[in-house]
Design a protein around this nucleic acid. Structure first.
Length: 468
RNA sequence: GGCCCGUUCGUCUAUCGGUUAGGACAUCUGGUUUUCAACCAGGCAAGAGGGGUUCGACUCCCCUACGGGCUGCCA
């Protein structure tokens, strides 16, 4: 319904890659909108021309795409809307909710220095031009400042933080339009959010204080204030603000580490949000149960162990086709060589016996090593140990018996059990050298599954090679 | 410095005045097993500290400590 449609947005600055915290903010906005038949918009806050780059914008879009967060309509460039921002600033002027200020940056700086020297810890610059008669205006560059209330308090009704009270006296008349005619962030966000019809602003709580000033702009223009929801930031495992020092901070890092996007979404959704005991859920389920009420108020730490666990569940429940496709995306993102056609086919055949044993794509590939590798099989240390002379003898005696047998699990099972019994050893004792011969590893899927996947000829060839 | 926000097991969290404070990850023990993963059973483990309010506080209020954020003609 148009009258109550929810509109959210994600508004990153294109100054670098998509931060994992930004990814989560985007995810919350996306879940909230998508779960309620609303719209999720994307706006690039590129008004700072010095720091904005098209590469960064591309990286952010790529990050969102990988996370599976699709947006409605065209990506809005905040910079492109500068004329509209200036228009609103001038409208505030005519409404009398803003004024021209001719104080120079140097004057303001001097004021702040002087106040600090006097021991005033929080100098609020009060422009002398606030109530000046236009007749006294000099012919000089000016900024447009908002005429903010000097007394009283501003209440932010926040869905996550509750009601936050800000004393108006601590807020100065913020600049909405710079002397070069460009808008400041505080003006631009409000105008854009309003024009884009944003109903719910879900963003990091580093913006909580800004909300008070922005709310004043809404009031000054007579616009409806959106629903605020300021979510806590994500911290590193040590509880400190997540920074480069922690290693992976960009969502692309997580893709390159081989975490599936569905698992990332699940983990990130649960990081700082809860719905009873719900832990593992699909994205569709998340859309249904996600709400603002479940968002926590304290910063959450990244826990890679839990991330892995969650991802393991998702790899296990992902359809093979999707798994194969995303795995190839992982290989490309990680700079690893792509699968050959033959490897692809074998991996597709092997998936059923490896997908529920892996938590990440690199792990999946390692488990599927027996299918992806080709002779000669080079055993690692543990595998080499299993291939002692006695074991090689047993493998040698096994080879001819695999020649004329129907290649089914039942048949293989009975042969291997017979061989184990004939040699007076338990099945486990036979399985170890078999793993070593077949995969060159000591930890692998079931020996039967491996034999079934690579086929009779390849199995015999590998056994011959190992027992030679 | 000022202002704002936060603080439940190691971690993510449930609890919305009365619970043996629950779940998940991690960890430990046992079981199952063809190695690994998984799985099953069980264990360890929490309300930052101090004051109030109340018959009763994890829950409401205040103070302190700690953590975070904001404090630009950056976003």
């Amino acid at each position: 319904m148009a009258d109550s449609q929810i509109v959210t947005r994600f508004a990153p600055s294109p100054t670098g890659y998509l931060h994992i915290g930004g990814g989560r903010t985007a995810l919350f906005n996306w879940l909230f909108a998508r779960g309620r038949g609303g719209k999720f918009l994307l706006r690039i806050e590129d008004t700072d021309r010095e720091r904005s780059t098209p590469e960064a914008t591309a990286a952010i879009l790529q990050g969102l795409t990988w996370l599976g967060l699709d947006w409605d309509g065209e990506v809005v460039s905040q910079f492109d809307r500068a004329p509209r921002h200036a228009e609103v600033a001038h409208e505030m002027l005519t409404r009398g909710t803003a004024y021209k200020c001719f104080s120079t940056a140097a004057e303001i700086e001097a004021f702040r220095e002087a106040e600090k020297a006097r021991g005033v810890s929080y100098p609020v610059f009060l422009s002398p031009w606030r109530d000046a008669d236009p007749i006294t205006y000099p012919d000089a560059p000016y900024v447009i400042r908002m005429k903010a209330p000097r007394t009283g308090e501003t209440l932010i009704d926040d869905k996550v933080q509750g009601t936050v009270t800000i004393q108006n006296a601590t807020l100065d008349d913020m600049i909405v339009l710079r002397s070069d005619g460009t808008p400041t962030y505080m003006l631009a966000v409000v105008v854009d959010d309003h024009d884009m019809g944003v109903t719910h602003v879900i963003r990091g709580d580093d913006h909580l204080n800004n909300a008070a000033r922005q709310q004043m702009v809404y009031d000054a223009m007579g616009w409806a204030v959106p629903v605020w929801a300021h979510i806590p930031l994500i911290h590193g495992p040590d509880g400190k603000k997540l920074s480069k020092r922690h290693g992976a901070t960009g969502v692309h890092d997580y893709q390159a580490m081989g975490y599936p996007a569905a698992g990332m979404r699940n983990y990130l959704t649960r990081l700082g949000w809860a719905h009873g005991d719900a832990e593992i859920f699909t994205t569709d389920e998340a859309k249904k149960i996600f709400d603002l009420e479940g968002i926590g108020r304290s910063p959450a730490r990244l826990d890679f162990k839990k991330l892995e666990n969650v991802c393991g569940h998702h790899i296990a429940m992902m359809p093979d086709a999707a798994l194969l496709q995303e795995l190839q995306g992982y290989l490309a993102a990680a700079g690893r060589s792509a699968l050959t056609e033959g490897q692809y086919d074998l991996l597709a055949k092997a998936l059923y016996c490896v997908k529920d044993r892996a938590k990440t794509f690199p792990e999946l590939i390692e488990k599927a090593r027996f299918a992806l590798t080709s002779r000669p099989i080079v055993p690692d240390e543990a595998a080499a140990k299993a291939l002692d002379s006695v074991s090689r003898g047993i493998l040698k005696s096994l080879t001819p018996r695999l020649q004329n047998v129907s290649w089914t699990k039942d048949a293989l099972e009975s042969i291997l059990n017979d061989v184990a019994a004939e040699n007076g050893i338990g099945f486990g004792k036979l399985a170890q050298p078999l793993r070593a011969a077949l995969a060159g590893r000591s930890a692998t899927p079931s020996v039967f599954d491996m034999m079934l996947v690579i086929g009779q000829d390849e199995t015999i060839a590998r056994l011959k090679e190992a027992s030679a």
